[in-house]
Design a protein around this nucleic acid. Structure first.
Length: 269
DNA sequence: ATTTTCCCCTGCCGGC
DNA sequence: TGCCGGCAGGGGAAAA
């Protein structure tokens, strides 16, 4: 569910709410999240530590503690990180309490979210090596270089975290619509002009979504537990059969790489 | 090498 | 109203 704009929104919220806060307690209520041994290790290493930095790479959220150790979060499909002033009855997999009285809950309907602890000098070791961040690590030339000579279709290519980090199904579809390119086009068949257009479309799509605090179609919530409004901008995502906002032709729904995709057969070539 | 299928989970939605 | 299959935004492993 959450892609780059959603994680960025949560990152900013947590930075405002939790920077300088000291971790006072850890309650794990889903053993699938970490073993008892890992929980002991977390407590030993992080209790009493101050939360100093809030970073993001792609869809990973990275909290830096005062000793430079890090807590790494990946929310997968339905994870939420929600700060509350004190009490909250939310069903959660993890609850962190801070000395100042605030609470951070990891809420996660489908229980796919993951968390890791990383010691100060330890590499991040994300599950796969990540490509450059789609917002902060890309430029036009690098983007064109990534597309060049790749036979893979453009939509799964945009979503491949090893190549570009942060883009998921929603924003890949929206950027392709904005750039008037079909999701099924092989990367190598994208011209320089189209590639430049797609790069700009992707940047704009991500920035606008951040400005709207992310897309809530179902599960996503920001760091305060509130919905985003970027879903109001969606032109194609989950709109199969509905009229294209540009030409009114019915949008076409299909599957690419085992994932749903929607595009305008008239506008996107 | 690339692409598809299946799986990890839970809940929702549409169709019957 | 109730049941059931299909589907969901992530991502990895295994199979094709």
């Amino acid at each position: 569910m959450p892609e780059l704009p959603e994680i960025e929104t949560i990152r900013r919220d947590l930075q405002i709410e939790l920077r300088g806060e000291r971790l006072a307690s850890i309650e794990v209520s889903d053993r699938r999240l970490m073993t008892a041994q890992e929980e002991r290790h977390w407590k030993e290493a992080t209790l009493g530590r101050t939360w100093a930095g809030f970073e993001r790479h792609g869809k990973y959220l990275i909290v830096v503690l005062d000793d430079k150790s890090r807590l790494v979060f990946h929310l997968r499909m339905t994870g939420q990180l929600v700060v509350s002033a004190g009490e909250s009855k939310a069903k959660r997999r993890l609850r962190l309490r801070f000395a100042g009285g605030k609470t951070l809950d990891l809420i996660d309907q489908r229980r796919f979210a993951e968390v890791w602890f990383r010691a100060p000098q330890e590499p991040l070791r994300t599950t796969t090596p990540l490509g450059p961040d789609a917002l902060t690590g890309l430029n036009r030339d690098l983007f064109l270089h990534i597309l060049k000579r790749r036979t893979t279709r453009i939509q799964p290519l945009l979503m491949d975290q090893r190549l570009i980090a942060g883009v998921g199904n929603i924003y890949a579809q929206e950027a392709l619509f904005k750039a008037l390119i079909r999701p099924s086009r092989p990367g190598r068949r994208i011209t320089r002009e189209e590639g430049g257009r797609l790069f700009e479309a992707l940047q704009e799509t991500l920035r606008q979504a951040i400005d709207h605090r992310g897309s809530t179609s179902r599960n996503y919530r920001d760091g305060y537990g509130k919905e985003g409004s970027a879903q109001t901008l969606h032109a194609v995502y989950r709109r199969g059969g509905k009229p294209c906002p540009r030409c009114s032709t019915p949008l076409k729904a299909g599957r690419i790489g085992g994932r749903g995709t929607v595009y305008c057969p008239q506008c996107q070539r």
